[in-house]
């Protein structure tokens, strides 16, 4: 049973990583990267590594996504300033 769930998760990871690479908008790339991290943390859980799964979920899917979004916001602020 778990192998089917894992397969679905792996396919989701591949699709969202492709979105992260090919998307034109940086924001959707960042969200897709967060999804990749979430899927990977699920995979870690299936592979019986709950330690790594918790860390990946907290840092990869939560904090680093947020920090990327904040950084993107700062970069955009700088860009508009230069245009003025």
């Amino acid at each position: 049973m778990i192998i089917y769930v894992a397969t679905v998760v792996v396919i989701a990871i591949i699709i969202s990583s492709l979105i992260a690479v090919f998307s034109k908008k940086l924001l959707s790339s960042i969200i897709a990267m967060g999804l990749v991290s979430l899927g990977v943390s699920g995979l870690f859980f299936f592979l019986q590594a709950p330690d790594v799964a918790i860390t990946e979920a907290a840092i990869g899917a939560g904090l680093s996504t947020a920090i990327f979004v904040i950084a993107l916001k700062r970069v955009k602020k700088g860009e508009t300033k230069d245009e003025e």
């Binding site: 330690d51 918790i54 907290a58 904090l63």
Partner: peptide, 14 residues
């Protein structure tokens, strides 16, 4: 239990 300093700290930071 699973977990430790790094995940705990990351959870608090989130």
């Amino acid at each position: 239990t699973p977990g430790g300093g790094f995940p705990g700290g990351a959870v608090i930071a989130s």
